[in-house]
Amino acid sequence: MRQKIQKRDNDTLLEGNLITSQLEKRKLNLFIDISGTIIIIFIFLFPFLWMVGMSFKDRIQTFQIPPAWFFKPTLENYRDLFSREIFGHYFVNSLLVVAFSVLISLLIAAPAAYALSRFNFKAKKDFSFWILSVRMAPAISVVIPYFLLGSLIGILDTKFVLILSYLTFNIPFAVWMLKGFISEIPIEIEEAAMVDGYSRFEVFYKIIIPLTATGFAATSILCIIQSWNEFTFALFLTTTNARTLPTIVTQFLTFQGVVWGEMSSAATITVLPAVIFAILVRKHLITGLTFGALKE
């Protein structure tokens, strides 16, 4: 018993300086809360904000030590960046590849997700788990046959091959996400509609799709984020025509050291859409990233 008390005392001691009164305990808690909040924001937000800030600095300010905390923002870097043809080209490629790949994925995934959440059949579990392991396959392994087959058929460096390769992770992901959303719709609604003479297909697009609209939106946004950020396929399968934004790093790696400002502006523009989208779907982010293991 004494040991126990001793231990508890030690724990209290660990928490801070001798806690004598309730008031001091409250002060200590406030201190922990405030310093914790500051530390988290400093570690995780500061590097991001610093990048954005750097994109508005002129060349001298970027290299200034001690760093320029306050400065008159300039748009020079963005002007330089947009004057490079390559940037606009990459940007448009990114948009097109992401849009088509996500759209096609949803079209293909939606019926599969419906079947997996509504029908009972023997291989159901095996099929859904097989789909999940497809999603896990490392891009660097999948990209080799894509590169070789692509060059044999002659489709390398096209948006088509990129869209195709993005389906390999978007379809499994979309099936898995949509399955979760569809399963939340009570089956009674469907049964009632079928009694009213709706066919399965009508039930699907007149009832299920409208009812899971938010689910579809969240799924497509998560697909957009992963496709937008994809690097490996884009690096291997394209050279000039179909390059996307994440591969712009290869442009900067060669003459690194001179154009930090421009680099940061390219980084900011590439990163910003993904970040905004992620904050929009924050409620579904963890569900998505854990493949439905955690529901919020």
Partner: peptide
């Protein structure tokens, strides 16, 4: 809310870009 928003940002930063930016840092 602010803290969760803060935490979401690093994991959505394009990884190749994160590497590049930290190279500068």
């Amino acid at each position: 809310g602010l803290l969760i928003g803060t935490l979401i940002i690093p994991m959505t930063v394009t990884p190749s870009i994160a590497g590049l930016i930290w190279r500068l840092y």
